[in-house]
């Protein structure tokens, strides 16, 4: 590793520590809600979409704000999203192939 000049190209200013703490509060709150949903029997029928939406929100917030994707060069977002989309496609395909289109093993 070497000493080098930082090559920051952020056109927008990053959020400051105050925003980071607010985001953390939201992330924590969502986690509490997620666990609460797990314990509410009435929500069982819709638990899957609810939890997926909530965790996707957390995912997007960490990637967008803490990893600065929202403020950084677009090429970083595209590199990450390409991997993410390919992985998501594979996972969904596996679920469909093994749980919906094939008879379950005895």
């Amino acid at each position: 590793m070497s000493a080098q000049a930082p090559t920051h190209t952020n056109e927008h200013s990053h959020p400051g520590p105050n925003e980071y703490i607010k985001i953390a509060a939201v992330l924590g709150a969502i986690t509490v809600v997620e666990v609460a949903i797990y314990y509410i029997p009435a929500l069982r029928p819709v638990i899957m979409p609810l939890l997926i939406v909530l965790s996707a929100t957390k995912f997007a917030m960490v990637a967008g704000f803490y990893m600065h994707l929202k403020f950084d060069h677009r090429i970083f977002t595209s590199m990450f999203v390409v991997g993410l989309v390919a992985a998501a496609f594979m996972i969904v395909a596996f679920i469909v192939l093994f749980h919906f289109l094939r008879a379950p093993l005895a």
């Binding site: 390919a86 496609f89 594979m90 469909v96 192939l97 289109l101 094939r102």
Partner: peptide, 18 residues
């Protein structure tokens, strides 16, 4: 190329949809 892999596996019985 990431959406075609199972054409190597037609004979495994993927079902008509897949």
């Amino acid at each position: 190329s990431f959406t075609v892999w199972a054409h190597h596996m037609f004979t495994t019985g993927l079902g008509p949809i897949a």
